[in-house]
Nucleic acid binder design. Sequence first.
DNA 1: ATGTAAACGAGACGGTACGTCAAGTCTTCGC
DNA 2: GCGAAGACTTGACGTACCGTCTCGTTTACAT
Lengths: 190, 190, 190, 190
Amino acid sequence: MPRPRSESARQSVLAAMRGALSADGYDAVTIEGLAAEAGVSKQTIYRWWPSKAAILGEALLEGELPGGDVALSFSSDVEADLRGWLATAGANLARPENVALVRALIAVTATDPALGTALNHRFADPIVSWIVARIARAQEDGAVRADADPVVVADQFVAMTSYAALTGRPLTPDRVDALVHHLMQGIATR
Amino acid sequence: MPRPRSESARQSVLAAMRGALSADGYDAVTIEGLAAEAGVSKQTIYRWWPSKAAILGEALLEGELPGGDVALSFSSDVEADLRGWLATAGANLARPENVALVRALIAVTATDPALGTALNHRFADPIVSWIVARIARAQEDGAVRADADPVVVADQFVAMTSYAALTGRPLTPDRVDALVHHLMQGIATR
Amino acid sequence: MPRPRSESARQSVLAAMRGALSADGYDAVTIEGLAAEAGVSKQTIYRWWPSKAAILGEALLEGELPGGDVALSFSSDVEADLRGWLATAGANLARPENVALVRALIAVTATDPALGTALNHRFADPIVSWIVARIARAQEDGAVRADADPVVVADQFVAMTSYAALTGRPLTPDRVDALVHHLMQGIATR
Amino acid sequence: MPRPRSESARQSVLAAMRGALSADGYDAVTIEGLAAEAGVSKQTIYRWWPSKAAILGEALLEGELPGGDVALSFSSDVEADLRGWLATAGANLARPENVALVRALIAVTATDPALGTALNHRFADPIVSWIVARIARAQEDGAVRADADPVVVADQFVAMTSYAALTGRPLTPDRVDALVHHLMQGIATR
DNA sequence: ATGTAAACGAGACGGTACGTCAAGTCTTCGC
DNA sequence: GCGAAGACTTGACGTACCGTCTCGTTTACAT
């Protein structure tokens, strides 16, 4: 019968976290700053989240993850499709808001492995699914060898994306072409 | 005529950093703790290093980087050599002291991109060199296609290694086999 | 037909205050603790009392005040009667439950003069009345000079009692004897 | 060999305490407020004082205690001298700054008996000494009976003063006259 | 051998943020 | 409409480190 949790307070905090993240970076985010920015008291934050990382986690899960919005349709050319995906992901990751998000994600992972792993799954799983599905289709079409393991290939894509984000080295069209070409060559029929 | 910088103080601090790193993780390291542990005054630390990250940097540069000691000789089988390298690197990264080091490296990178990038180069460059050299030799031997770009392949190896370290997913022999096989298939002659 | 104020809630709160007082001291008493201890909600307390001091006040007014239960009968010897009263009061004040009560009383007085003064009157008035009556009787008997002001003497008794309670210095039989003897000498006939 | 404690910081804190005391009362004094008012960091306060009460103690010990400045010279009339002292003490205690000080003193005593007792001694001892000395002189002069105990009388003065301060009832000339007259009558020769 | 100037330990200082506690107010629901 | 439960804002608590600033003391080198 008590008063129910305030949804608006919750949203304000998550929004403040997203804002602070791109403004200052994860390390510089402060619970007190969040509270002030969100117009919420510190106590309300501590009542619902055990740590800064937990807020980040919820903010990421709630929001749109960069790369997660892979709604690209399948064309008849696997390599072109994957090239398209990697180029899009690379462009997304280069956008400032997302740079901050991914850096934060990496920072928590290096700091709180358990939460980090969970978030990384949330980030990587849809990507892997899409790539695996695309390659499976290519196997049906006969463009990719039947004995290739789609998951191994998908992992490479995710690893490349993550490493590019970490080091900040941009995925230029040239690199995208070379990478995808190399990875596909390993599984193409003939 | 002034008194010269104390090398022993410097070494104590770097050792304290390495110790604290594996004991508590980078985030939990404090300058005061370092000073106490090293038996050195805070001021001495601030006199010589501008930040915690800088100490980490020097500690990493001074110490043995895991994976950097790849002095494997070339056999006649490229794929076996690369499999050997990746297996060794994976085993190294799984050792506790090194987990802490790599996590710290990732944490600084996500926090201080400039320093992080420099350190990442120190970490990645020898690996890339070795892999590029091995593949170049394989091209001479005719085992790898002449038009393949060794750097692209080397990048994949580094990215995979880094991503495995970040997520903590171990590089099991099975995965190593599958990965190397796939990556080599893309460049093997016919 | 509103629900009437719950007398049992009221009693629980006052009892909790008395309990907490002797257990932890006035300063350490908290409204939340009181509410929890009394099995009552905070709001219920705030609905009926404006402050912690007010609850203390009601608890004191409701309960037995130490020293207030002076129902000693008059003997033929004024000095012996007063000695008896002061000894009893001193003994009462030394009992642990009462130490807490008196300390609390003094603390509110120093903090909330208005309430404190009211409570002090509740505490002092019966004492003053009794002493004044006893001395008046002695004046009728001719044991005390007619021109002495009984109120001035009564004030001394109360002041001594209060000061002893404040400083915690016990009223030993020796001190009681000396004090009463001195005070009576000032008003005894010749 | 470190930097020595800053005397100016110490003084600022004590001054801030004295100021806040008369402005708001002891209970309302806040360590943070003190720090802000004194232009000192909270940590500096916590480094040197374990509690608010300890600061009050030092502030009281350092400053002039009301009533402690009894430098009245002895005339040939004991009663007049004591009347003079009590009147002066009463007037002092009625001054606003001192009301706050004494209330604070009483509040700590009721809260932290050990410290309170120590402070009360600092407050009462010089008074007792002076009164005892004056009465001893009167005994030499033959104005006070040789078998009277000066300490018992001095205690009465202190108790009266303290009780008057606690209850806030002013020591008017009338009351002073009556009290001193009564107390002296008990020990005057004849 | 003696001056001297920087390095060093120690740690005080003004700060910022932490995570906790209680105060007093507000909101919901059951009786 | 009273009362429980408890979410909310507010503001102080005491702690941990930050980076800066004196302090004396030590020590290598240049006279």
